[in-house]
Each structure stands twice: as structure tokens, then as C-alpha cells.
Design a protein around this nucleic acid. Structure first.
Lengths: 151, 151
DNA sequence: CCTGGATAGCTTAACGTTAAGCTATCTGGA
DNA sequence: TCCAGATAGCTTAACGTTAAGCTATCCAGG
């Protein structure tokens, strides 16, 4: 019985390693996500809602299109997410002066107070979760992820 | 003006690094996810549906509770996902003999042919996406993710 | 001016997802 | 035997999400 071709062998081995690496990456990412989502849930915020408030807080008022691009969500989705935030009085929509199609989204006073309180908690949660890795390990992880994400 | 306390300085720096690392990790993971979901979409499968078919294919028939535990989804969700697969004739539900509460989920012939065809494509997509990293880099990434996911 | 293509946001349909609560079944102890 | 607690699956309500298609507005070429 002939030995399997080296190329075939290498392929199998590469595939096994890739699947195993993929599994660990998704597990780590999912756990981190769940942990952070749980923290936001305590403030009655979904991750998308937090993303919108955070963008408005750090970048200032912007239209829904830009918000959607920023948090990588569809236009229809932004209508719902911003609508839910507006219903809670955290943001307010205004017709843009120059362009009648745009709805400029602003933080309200309540919304700004909320995100100003919650953002540091969220950042601390991220820092805490990543604290199991040393600074060098985090640097290595970031480098690998950047390389992987760029592809 | 006094220098900032070392402890405070270290904390800020640690936080900045953690946020940056977190961002790169989520970006890499999200891109990978999107890419794989797109591949499954070509086969008219959602990631959850694929997860169910894959579990049944590799582990054999099992009840919905075990499926939910395997793909980390709620019990109510399994009812919908398995229901959609059943509607398409890819799986079939059977009352378990011993315990009348359990619905044993089986692959149908159609379902098995589908997953037997799609699984290698999915595995190849994962392998291809991770191929931007060398074997050593993948090993390093897996180790870091395992450490992070365990926390 | 005005008309057609582009753009922003909204709506709808479909599915995913969870949490909470319901029904049916099982199981162990009185 | 019988009942109370546990368990599996289902249902519902609410939100997230996308794709596709709609309306209103803008803008540029004729």
C-alpha cells in the first residue's frame, strides 16, 4: 500500500490545524462578546445601541447612514435601533438643514449622561477580560488578528 | 505639576492596549464569520442550520436539548432551527422510545447528502481564510485564544 | 427649468435569538 | 400508588438583522 502523497498529507494537516485554530478563535471571541453583552444588558443596552451611543459620544451628531457604516449594520436596521433609542429619550432625530433626506441623530442630555457613565464600565470590562493575557501576549494577539482580519 | 502616579499611568496604558486588542480580535472574528456565512448562504444554510446538520452528521442523532447545548443556542431557538430544517426535508423528528419528552433529531437522506457535500467546502473555506497565517502563527493564535477563552 | 439617476431613510417579510412561561412527561420519595 | 419537583420542548413577545423594494429628496445634464 503506497504512502499517501506528501501534498495530500500536508493538506490534511493544514486543514486540521486551521479548523482547530478557528474553533479556539470563535470560542474566545464569542465568550468575550457574551460577557460584554451581559454587562451592557445590565444597563438595558444592546450592543448595537451601545455602538450608536458611543459613536455619537465620541464623534458627535451624525446621520443614520454614517452610523450604520460605523457599526456595520444595514440601513433598515439603523431605523429600528435609533428608533428604539429615541423612544427611550436617549437620542433625537433632526432633519438636516442642507439635505432633506438626512436624519441627523443627536445625543440628548439623558443619553449623554448614560453613555458617559457606561462607557468607562464597558472599557473596564474589556480591560478586565483581556487581563488574563500579558502585555506582550496582547501585542502578539493583536498582530495576528490584524493580519487575519486584513485578508 | 506632579507626574501622574505610576499606577494610574499603567492603568491607562493597559486599558488603551486592551481596547485596541479587543477591536482587532472582534474585527478578525467578524470578518471570518461573515466570509463563512456567505459561503453557507450559497447553500441556503444559516450558520445555526449548518451547526445542527454538522453535529448530526458527526455525532449521530440526538435530541434538541443536546443540539442546543452543542451549538450554544436556547431551547426555543432549536425548535425554530430544527423546524426550518424539517420543513426542507433535511432532518426528521422522532419521539424517543424511552422518554416521551425527547424529540430525537435524525438526518434524512437528503440532509446527509447535503452536509456531506457542504462540510468539506466549509472546512476548505476556513483553511483558506487562515492560510494567511503560517503554521507557527496559527499555533500561537490558538494558544492565545485558548488562554483568553478559558477565563 | 425639468427630468432621470443617485441617495437616505422607511417598510415589509423572513429568520434568528432570547427570556419567560406553558404543557407534557418523567422520576423519586412519601 | 400518587404527587411534587425536574426536565424537554413549544409558544409568545420583543428585539436584532438582512434583503428587497418603496418614497422623498437631491443633483446634474440637457
Amino acid at each position: 500500500m503506497p504512502k499517501p502523497k506528501p501534498s495530500r498529507y500536508r493538506s490534511d494537516r493544514a486543514e486540521r490545524q486551521a479548523l482547530s485554530t478557528y474553533l479556539k478563535l470563535t470560542r474566545a471571541s464569542d465568550r468575550l462578546w457574551d460577557r460584554l453583552a451581559l454587562g451592557l444588558q445590565r444597563e438595558d443596552l444592546t450592543p448595537s445601541q451601545f455602538g450608536v451611543l458611543e459613536a455619537l459620544y465620541h464623534l458627535g451628531p451624525m446621520c443614520q447612514r454614517d452610523l450604520g457604516e460605523r457599526i456595520l449594520r444595514s440601513s433598515g436596521n439603523m431605523t429600528m435601533v435609533v428608533g428604539n433609542l429615541e423612544r427611550r429619550g436617549l437620542v433625537r432625530r433632526e432633519r438636516a438643514a442642507g439635505d432633506g433626506r438626512l436624519r441627523q441623530v443627536h445625543l440628548t442630555g439623558t443619553g449623554e449622561r448614560l453613555i458617559r457613565r457606561v462607557f468607562p464600565l464597558h472599557a473596564a470590562a474589556i480591560t478586565g477580560a483581556l487581563a488574563v493575557l500579558t502585555s506582550e501576549e496582547q501585542r502578539a494577539l493583536a498582530t495576528l488578528c490584524r493580519k487575519l482580519g486584513a485578508a
